[in-house]
Nucleic acid binder design. Structure first.
Length: 111
DNA sequence: GGATTGACGTCTG
DNA sequence: GCAGACGCCAATC
């Protein structure tokens, strides 16, 4: 059973995001049955406190780097995404729909 | 203890 | 199709 807090699940799921892929708050919230995408954002906000989580791979429904402002450096998030081969323009992921990773398809990594 | 905010999403107009 | 309002649940002030 999961004695961990709901954000612990978010941390784990966020770490499972394959490199070069991104996901949305709503997808994670739906998969983890949190009830609201805001809970995911809340969890990731604490993720920086003693938790190394690739939160830069998590964007909103619009593929927008909404949380970049909460990073140590706003440009860090975009830089990390570009470093993984993700194209980012105007704080938004270009091939967002193509790079979108669904929590239920975590086995669809490779290729 | 109450009110507001918060890395969002969906519905209605 | 775009804009605005409401809803979610938890944490912080």
């Amino acid at each position: 059973m999961n004695t961990e807090s709901y954000y612990q699940k978010v941390f784990d799921l966020t770490r499972l995001i394959p490199k070069g892929r991104i996901t949305t708050y709503g997808a994670m919230a739906s998969y983890l049955a949190l009830g609201s995408a805001r809970m995911v954002g809340w969890a990731l906000n604490k993720s920086f406190v003693g938790h190394s989580v690739p939160a830069h791979r998590v964007v909103n429904r619009k593929g927008e780097l909404s949380g970049r402002n909460h990073f140590p450096n706003p440009e860090l998030m975009q830089q990390l995404l570009e470093s993984e081969g993700i194209e980012v323009e105007d704080n938004r992921v270009i091939n967002f729909k193509d790079l979108f990773w669904d929590p239920g398809e975590e086995l669809d990594i490779d290729l």
